[in-house]
């Protein structure tokens, strides 16, 4: 088990706190595979979001992690990969 997990709820909270939310987008809908651009977030919003994830979860994200993660699902996977401790055995 990871020490803690980065969930979609965490991501939505951090997006709202750091970058706000587009009135035309329902973040509580099925957004896992929707492009961040379609959700109203440009690169600077993702930079701010990445900084907040790093602070809160005590990790360091590569620049590529943010630029390559086109959707919430891919960002969740990338962050959780850093949170999972090394497998034993």
């Amino acid at each position: 088990m990871p020490a803690h997990e980065f969930t979609l709820e965490d991501l939505k909270r951090i997006l709202r706190e750091g970058a706000g939310a587009d009135e035309g987008v329902d973040l509580d809908g099925d957004i896992l595979d929707t492009d961040f651009g379609s959700l109203g977030y440009e690169s600077l919003a993702l930079l701010e979001t990445g900084g907040r994830i790093e602070r809160e979860f005590g990790i360091t994200l590569d620049d590529e992690t943010l630029t390559d993660a086109a959707t919430p699902r891919s960002l969740l996977e990338a962050v959780n990969a850093l949170l999972v401790p090394a497998e034993v055995g």
């Binding site: 709202r16 706190e17 970058a19 706000g20 939310a21 587009d22 600077l44 919003a45």
Partner: peptide
């Protein structure tokens, strides 16, 4: 103003 503009 839209919510996206407020934090920035």
């Amino acid at each position: 103003l839209p919510g996206r503009l407020l934090p920035q």
